[in-house]
Amino acid sequence: MTGDLKIAFNAHGPELRSYLRRRLGDAHLASDLVQDTFLRVIERPETRVLDVRAYLYTIARHLLLNHQKQEARRRTDSVPHEWFGDVAADAPTPEDAADAKLQLERLQRFVGELPMRTQQIFVLNRIDGLTQIEVARALSISESSVQKHLAMAIQHITERLRSR
C-alpha cells in the first residue's frame, strides 16, 4: 500500500480530517490525528488492505478513542481553594491516637491471656498475615489445629471486649 499512499492521502485525507474535526472540535488536533493515521499505515507496510478508506477510518477512529481516553484521564475538575480547608488531614487527631493506643494495649493484654501456642498462632495469622496453611507449615501442625486455636483466640478476645 505504501506506493499508493500519496493517492490515498489526497483522496481520503480531507475526508478524515473533516470526520475528526467534527468529533474533536479542534482542526489542528484533527490534522495531527490524520497524520498519525497515515504514519500507522507507513509503519505497517506488510498489511494487505482490501478497502483503503475503511482501513484509514478504522485507524483514525482508534486514534480518536485513544486520544479521548487520555484526555479523560488528564482532566481534573477545578475546585475552589477554600474547599481544601475542609479536607481532613491524614494524620489522626491526638485523641484518636491516644484511643488507638489504649485499644492496642487492651488487645495485647487479651492476647497475652491466651495459652502460648494460641498466642503464637494468632500473631502469625492476624498480625504477620500468614495464611492458616502457612502457619500450619511453619509450626509443623495440622491446619485444623490452627483453625481450632484461632477460633479459641477470637472467641476469647470477643468475650473480653464485650465484658468491658
Rank of each mutant, 00 (worst) to 15 (best):
G129I: 02
Q119D: 07
G3F: 05
E43P: 06
F110Y: 11
V52E: 05
K101D: 13
E71P: 10
A8Q: 04
R73P: 08
I7Y: 12
R40M: 03
I42D: 00
D128M: 09
A100Q: 14
S31I: 04
L114E: 03
H149F: 13
L63N: 00
D90L: 14
R75T: 15
R109P: 10
S31K: 10
E46Y: 02
R22G: 01
H156V: 03
H67C: 02
I154E: 15
R75I: 07
K101W: 07
Y55C: 06
D4F: 05
L50V: 10
T47N: 00
G25D: 02
R23M: 05
G129L: 05
G112P: 05
S140R: 13
L33I: 01
T76D: 01
V79I: 15
K101V: 09
E134N: 04
S140L: 13
T47S: 08
I127M: 14
N10H: 12
T47R: 04
P92S: 11
Q119H: 06
G13H: 09
F122Y: 13
D77V: 13
Q155S: 05
I157V: 15
G112E: 14
I121E: 00
A89Y: 06
I157W: 10
R44N: 15
A153T: 02
A98D: 13
A54V: 12
L114V: 11
E143V: 10
I121C: 07
Q35G: 00
E46L: 08
R23P: 02
S142N: 09
T93A: 11
A72T: 15
D36A: 10
V135A: 08
L150H: 07
D4Y: 04
G129E: 04
H156G: 06
Q155L: 13
L33V: 02
R117N: 12
